[in-house]
Amino acid sequence: MSSASLNVEIRRIRDLAPGIREFSLSRTDGDDFPIYSGGSHIVLSLPLSDRPHRNPYSLLGDPTDRKTWRVAVRKQEDSRGGSRWLHEQAREGMRIDISAPVNLFSLNRLGRRHILVAGGIGITPILSQARELARLGADFEVHYAYRAPEYGVFVDELEALAPGRIHHYVQSRREQIEFSSLLAGRPLGTHFYICGPGGMVAASMNAGKALGWPESHLHSEQFLAPTGGEPFDVQLTLSGKAFTVPSDLSLLEAIEQQGVDAPYLCRGGACGQCELEVVDASGELIHHDLYLSAEERASGKKIMPCVSRLKGGCLTLNL
Protein backbone atom coordinates (compact mmCIF):
# COMPACT_ATOMS: atom_id res chain seq x y z
CA MET A 1 0.00 0.00 0.00
CA SER A 2 3.02 2.29 0.05
CA SER A 3 2.92 4.71 -2.85
CA ALA A 4 4.97 4.09 -5.99
CA SER A 5 8.64 4.81 -5.47
CA LEU A 6 11.24 6.45 -7.68
CA ASN A 7 14.97 5.80 -7.51
CA VAL A 8 16.99 8.99 -7.42
CA GLU A 9 20.60 10.08 -7.22
CA ILE A 10 21.75 12.77 -4.82
CA ARG A 11 23.28 15.16 -7.35
CA ARG A 12 24.25 18.02 -5.11
CA ILE A 13 24.48 18.73 -1.40
CA ARG A 14 24.66 22.34 -0.19
CA ASP A 15 25.13 23.52 3.37
CA LEU A 16 22.74 26.44 3.70
CA ALA A 17 23.00 27.31 7.37
CA PRO A 18 24.25 25.66 10.57
CA GLY A 19 22.38 22.34 10.66
CA ILE A 20 20.45 22.90 7.40
CA ARG A 21 21.41 21.10 4.20
CA GLU A 22 19.83 21.10 0.79
CA PHE A 23 19.73 18.00 -1.42
CA SER A 24 19.18 18.10 -5.18
CA LEU A 25 17.80 14.84 -6.60
CA SER A 26 17.55 13.49 -10.14
CA ARG A 27 15.98 10.29 -11.43
CA THR A 28 18.41 7.46 -12.06
CA ASP A 29 16.40 6.20 -15.07
CA GLY A 30 16.88 9.56 -16.81
CA ASP A 31 13.15 10.21 -17.11
CA ASP A 32 11.47 13.45 -16.15
CA PHE A 33 9.89 13.88 -12.74
CA PRO A 34 6.15 14.52 -12.72
CA ILE A 35 4.98 18.08 -12.12
CA TYR A 36 3.81 18.61 -8.56
CA SER A 37 1.70 21.30 -6.90
CA GLY A 38 3.09 23.86 -4.46
CA GLY A 39 3.09 22.54 -0.88
CA SER A 40 3.76 18.87 -1.84
CA HIS A 41 6.09 16.56 0.03
CA ILE A 42 7.88 13.31 -0.73
CA VAL A 43 8.98 10.51 1.59
CA LEU A 44 12.67 9.60 1.46
CA SER A 45 13.71 6.01 2.21
CA LEU A 46 17.07 6.23 3.93
CA PRO A 47 19.42 3.23 4.10
CA LEU A 48 20.19 3.26 7.79
CA SER A 49 22.31 0.31 8.82
CA ASP A 50 19.69 -1.88 10.47
CA ARG A 51 16.47 -0.92 8.72
CA PRO A 52 15.04 1.42 6.08
CA HIS A 53 14.00 4.69 7.57
CA ARG A 54 11.38 6.89 5.92
CA ASN A 55 11.05 10.62 6.49
CA PRO A 56 8.76 13.17 4.77
CA TYR A 57 10.29 16.35 3.32
CA SER A 58 8.60 19.17 1.42
CA LEU A 59 9.65 19.81 -2.17
CA LEU A 60 10.94 23.37 -2.34
CA GLY A 61 12.06 23.94 -5.90
CA ASP A 62 10.17 25.05 -8.96
CA PRO A 63 7.16 22.69 -9.35
CA THR A 64 7.63 22.77 -13.12
CA ASP A 65 11.33 21.75 -12.98
CA ARG A 66 11.16 18.15 -14.19
CA LYS A 67 14.90 17.37 -14.00
CA THR A 68 15.70 18.27 -10.40
CA TRP A 69 13.80 18.06 -7.16
CA ARG A 70 15.13 19.76 -4.05
CA VAL A 71 14.53 19.21 -0.36
CA ALA A 72 16.11 20.89 2.66
CA VAL A 73 16.73 19.02 5.87
CA ARG A 74 17.32 20.39 9.32
CA LYS A 75 19.39 18.16 11.58
CA GLN A 76 17.17 17.21 14.48
CA GLU A 77 19.01 17.08 17.78
CA ASP A 78 16.86 14.20 19.02
CA SER A 79 16.94 12.50 15.62
CA ARG A 80 16.31 8.76 15.53
CA GLY A 81 18.73 8.63 12.63
CA GLY A 82 17.02 10.01 9.53
CA SER A 83 18.15 13.63 9.52
CA ARG A 84 21.46 12.61 11.10
CA TRP A 85 22.10 10.17 8.25
CA LEU A 86 21.35 12.90 5.70
CA HIS A 87 23.73 15.27 7.45
CA GLU A 88 26.57 12.85 8.25
CA GLN A 89 26.44 9.89 5.86
CA ALA A 90 24.77 11.12 2.68
CA ARG A 91 27.16 11.87 -0.19
CA GLU A 92 26.69 13.19 -3.70
CA GLY A 93 26.26 10.26 -6.11
CA MET A 94 24.40 8.07 -3.61
CA ARG A 95 21.10 6.56 -4.69
CA ILE A 96 17.94 6.39 -2.59
CA ASP A 97 14.24 5.68 -3.12
CA ILE A 98 11.61 8.35 -2.78
CA SER A 99 7.82 8.28 -2.94
CA ALA A 100 5.69 10.12 -5.45
CA PRO A 101 4.67 13.61 -4.26
CA VAL A 102 1.65 14.03 -2.01
CA ASN A 103 0.07 17.38 -1.23
CA LEU A 104 -1.59 17.92 2.15
CA PHE A 105 -0.96 21.67 2.00
CA SER A 106 -2.34 22.85 -1.31
CA LEU A 107 -3.23 26.38 -2.33
CA ASN A 108 -6.82 27.48 -2.77
CA ARG A 109 -6.75 28.93 -6.25
CA LEU A 110 -10.07 30.70 -5.78
CA GLY A 111 -8.49 32.92 -3.12
CA ARG A 112 -8.05 36.60 -3.93
CA ARG A 113 -5.06 37.10 -1.67
CA HIS A 114 -2.66 34.67 0.01
CA ILE A 115 -0.65 35.19 3.20
CA LEU A 116 2.19 32.66 3.54
CA VAL A 117 3.96 32.26 6.88
CA ALA A 118 7.06 30.17 7.54
CA GLY A 119 8.81 29.45 10.82
CA GLY A 120 12.38 28.17 10.38
CA ILE A 121 12.69 25.11 8.15
CA GLY A 122 8.91 25.45 7.56
CA ILE A 123 10.01 27.69 4.68
CA THR A 124 10.31 24.63 2.41
CA PRO A 125 6.64 24.10 1.42
CA ILE A 126 6.04 27.87 1.59
CA LEU A 127 8.76 28.37 -1.02
CA SER A 128 7.11 26.05 -3.55
CA GLN A 129 3.73 27.64 -2.83
CA ALA A 130 5.23 31.08 -3.40
CA ARG A 131 6.68 29.90 -6.71
CA GLU A 132 3.29 28.61 -7.81
CA LEU A 133 1.53 31.84 -6.79
CA ALA A 134 4.17 33.93 -8.57
CA ARG A 135 3.70 31.85 -11.72
CA LEU A 136 -0.09 32.33 -11.51
CA GLY A 137 0.35 36.06 -11.00
CA ALA A 138 -1.60 35.84 -7.75
CA ASP A 139 -1.61 38.43 -4.98
CA PHE A 140 0.52 37.08 -2.13
CA GLU A 141 2.97 38.01 0.62
CA VAL A 142 5.42 35.95 2.67
CA HIS A 143 6.20 36.34 6.36
CA TYR A 144 9.33 34.41 7.33
CA ALA A 145 10.51 34.00 10.92
CA TYR A 146 13.90 32.50 11.77
CA ARG A 147 16.32 32.31 14.68
CA ALA A 148 19.15 34.54 13.54
CA PRO A 149 20.25 36.15 10.25
CA GLU A 150 22.35 33.16 9.21
CA TYR A 151 19.30 30.86 9.46
CA GLY A 152 17.29 32.78 6.87
CA VAL A 153 17.73 30.18 4.14
CA PHE A 154 16.35 30.81 0.63
CA VAL A 155 15.78 34.52 1.27
CA ASP A 156 17.39 35.41 -2.06
CA GLU A 157 15.13 33.02 -3.96
CA LEU A 158 12.11 34.43 -2.15
CA GLU A 159 13.05 38.05 -2.81
CA ALA A 160 13.47 37.24 -6.50
CA LEU A 161 9.97 35.73 -6.60
CA ALA A 162 8.16 38.57 -4.88
CA PRO A 163 10.30 41.67 -4.50
CA GLY A 164 9.14 43.82 -1.61
CA ARG A 165 6.55 41.29 -0.46
CA ILE A 166 8.83 39.22 1.80
CA HIS A 167 8.75 40.21 5.45
CA HIS A 168 11.49 38.99 7.78
CA TYR A 169 11.23 38.36 11.52
CA VAL A 170 14.56 37.58 13.14
CA GLN A 171 14.30 36.13 16.60
CA SER A 172 17.81 37.20 17.65
CA ARG A 173 16.68 40.79 16.96
CA ARG A 174 13.59 40.19 19.10
CA GLU A 175 11.29 40.40 16.12
CA GLN A 176 8.24 38.20 16.04
CA ILE A 177 5.02 37.86 14.09
CA GLU A 178 1.96 39.31 15.81
CA PHE A 179 -0.75 37.16 14.29
CA SER A 180 -3.66 39.25 15.58
CA SER A 181 -2.45 42.26 13.61
CA LEU A 182 -1.22 40.21 10.64
CA LEU A 183 -4.69 38.67 10.18
CA ALA A 184 -6.85 41.68 11.10
CA GLY A 185 -8.69 43.71 8.49
CA ARG A 186 -7.83 41.42 5.58
CA PRO A 187 -10.16 41.55 2.58
CA LEU A 188 -12.79 38.91 1.98
CA GLY A 189 -11.36 35.93 0.10
CA THR A 190 -7.92 35.97 1.78
CA HIS A 191 -6.28 32.60 2.53
CA PHE A 192 -3.67 31.99 5.21
CA TYR A 193 -1.01 29.24 5.08
CA ILE A 194 1.53 28.45 7.79
CA CYS A 195 4.26 25.86 8.26
CA GLY A 196 6.37 26.07 11.38
CA PRO A 197 6.77 24.92 14.97
CA GLY A 198 3.65 23.69 16.78
CA GLY A 199 3.34 26.67 19.11
CA MET A 200 3.56 29.14 16.27
CA VAL A 201 0.95 27.27 14.21
CA ALA A 202 -1.43 27.10 17.19
CA ALA A 203 -0.99 30.82 17.94
CA SER A 204 -1.85 31.75 14.35
CA MET A 205 -4.90 29.48 14.21
CA ASN A 206 -6.21 30.92 17.49
CA ALA A 207 -5.70 34.48 16.26
CA GLY A 208 -7.51 33.67 13.00
CA LYS A 209 -10.47 32.08 14.75
CA ALA A 210 -10.78 35.00 17.19
CA LEU A 211 -10.99 37.34 14.20
CA GLY A 212 -13.76 35.20 12.68
CA TRP A 213 -11.71 33.50 9.97
CA PRO A 214 -13.47 30.30 8.89
CA GLU A 215 -11.54 27.02 8.87
CA SER A 216 -11.65 26.83 5.08
CA HIS A 217 -9.29 29.83 4.89
CA LEU A 218 -6.79 28.72 7.56
CA HIS A 219 -4.26 26.19 6.24
CA SER A 220 -1.37 24.69 8.17
CA GLU A 221 1.15 21.91 7.91
CA GLN A 222 3.32 20.31 10.51
CA PHE A 223 5.18 17.04 10.35
CA LEU A 224 6.00 15.21 13.52
CA ALA A 225 8.92 12.89 13.93
CA PRO A 226 7.92 9.68 15.66
CA THR A 227 9.13 9.79 19.20
CA GLY A 228 10.41 6.64 20.77
CA GLY A 229 8.84 5.31 23.91
CA GLU A 230 8.34 2.26 26.04
CA PRO A 231 8.17 -1.06 24.22
CA PHE A 232 4.71 -2.62 23.90
CA ASP A 233 3.16 -5.77 22.45
CA VAL A 234 1.05 -5.88 19.32
CA GLN A 235 -1.28 -8.47 17.86
CA LEU A 236 -2.55 -8.18 14.29
CA THR A 237 -5.86 -10.01 13.86
CA LEU A 238 -5.97 -10.32 10.05
CA SER A 239 -2.34 -11.27 9.44
CA GLY A 240 -2.05 -13.26 12.67
CA LYS A 241 1.21 -11.65 13.74
CA ALA A 242 2.28 -11.03 17.33
CA PHE A 243 5.38 -9.00 18.12
CA THR A 244 6.88 -6.33 20.36
CA VAL A 245 7.46 -2.74 19.23
CA PRO A 246 10.91 -1.79 20.52
CA SER A 247 11.47 1.62 22.05
CA ASP A 248 13.32 3.05 19.05
CA LEU A 249 10.84 2.03 16.33
CA SER A 250 7.47 3.54 15.54
CA LEU A 251 4.47 1.21 15.48
CA LEU A 252 4.28 1.62 11.69
CA GLU A 253 7.97 0.72 11.28
CA ALA A 254 7.56 -2.34 13.51
CA ILE A 255 4.55 -3.49 11.45
CA GLU A 256 6.57 -3.05 8.25
CA GLN A 257 9.47 -5.00 9.77
CA GLN A 258 7.06 -7.93 10.19
CA GLY A 259 6.51 -7.86 6.43
CA VAL A 260 2.95 -6.62 6.77
CA ASP A 261 1.91 -4.06 4.14
CA ALA A 262 0.31 -1.18 6.04
CA PRO A 263 -0.98 1.98 4.39
CA TYR A 264 0.85 5.28 4.83
CA LEU A 265 1.55 8.56 3.10
CA CYS A 266 3.19 11.29 5.17
CA ARG A 267 4.60 9.28 8.09
CA GLY A 268 4.35 12.47 10.14
CA GLY A 269 0.94 12.30 11.81
CA ALA A 270 -0.65 14.73 9.38
CA CYS A 271 -2.43 12.96 6.53
CA GLY A 272 -4.56 10.27 8.15
CA GLN A 273 -3.71 7.61 5.56
CA CYS A 274 -2.19 5.12 8.03
CA GLU A 275 -5.20 5.08 10.39
CA LEU A 276 -5.72 1.64 11.93
CA GLU A 277 -8.67 0.22 13.81
CA VAL A 278 -7.98 -0.66 17.44
CA VAL A 279 -9.70 -3.92 18.37
CA ASP A 280 -8.43 -3.94 21.93
CA ALA A 281 -5.91 -2.01 24.00
CA SER A 282 -4.82 -3.11 27.44
CA GLY A 283 -2.98 0.08 28.24
CA GLU A 284 -3.19 3.75 27.40
CA LEU A 285 -3.16 4.91 23.78
CA ILE A 286 -0.61 7.71 23.44
CA HIS A 287 -1.80 9.79 20.48
CA HIS A 288 0.83 12.11 18.97
CA ASP A 289 -0.85 12.76 15.61
CA LEU A 290 -2.46 15.96 14.32
CA TYR A 291 -5.23 14.10 12.48
CA LEU A 292 -7.70 12.45 14.85
CA SER A 293 -10.42 14.59 16.41
CA ALA A 294 -10.84 14.77 20.17
CA GLU A 295 -13.91 12.51 19.87
CA GLU A 296 -12.00 9.94 17.82
CA ARG A 297 -9.22 9.90 20.38
CA ALA A 298 -11.69 9.49 23.21
CA SER A 299 -13.37 6.57 21.44
CA GLY A 300 -10.16 4.54 21.70
CA LYS A 301 -11.00 2.88 18.36
CA LYS A 302 -8.39 4.49 16.12
CA ILE A 303 -4.64 4.98 16.09
CA MET A 304 -2.17 6.58 13.67
CA PRO A 305 0.75 4.13 13.85
CA CYS A 306 3.28 6.49 12.24
CA VAL A 307 3.64 8.56 15.41
CA SER A 308 1.39 7.10 18.13
CA ARG A 309 2.03 4.29 20.62
CA LEU A 310 0.60 2.32 23.51
CA LYS A 311 1.80 2.77 27.07
CA GLY A 312 2.11 -0.65 28.66
CA GLY A 313 0.14 -3.77 27.81
CA CYS A 314 -0.91 -5.15 24.44
CA LEU A 315 -2.48 -3.48 21.42
CA THR A 316 -4.70 -5.54 19.10
CA LEU A 317 -5.19 -4.08 15.62
CA ASN A 318 -7.51 -5.04 12.78
CA LEU A 319 -4.72 -5.52 10.23
Binding site: N108, G189, S216
Partner: peptide, 8 residues
Amino acid sequence: TFGVSRDE
Protein backbone atom coordinates in the same frame (compact mmCIF):
# COMPACT_ATOMS: atom_id res chain seq x y z
CA THR B 1 -16.14 35.99 -7.25
CA PHE B 2 -14.78 37.60 -4.07
CA GLY B 3 -13.24 34.28 -2.98
CA VAL B 4 -15.91 33.54 -0.39
CA SER B 5 -16.10 29.85 0.58
CA ARG B 6 -19.18 27.80 1.34
CA ASP B 7 -18.66 27.85 5.10
CA GLU B 8 -19.01 31.65 5.01
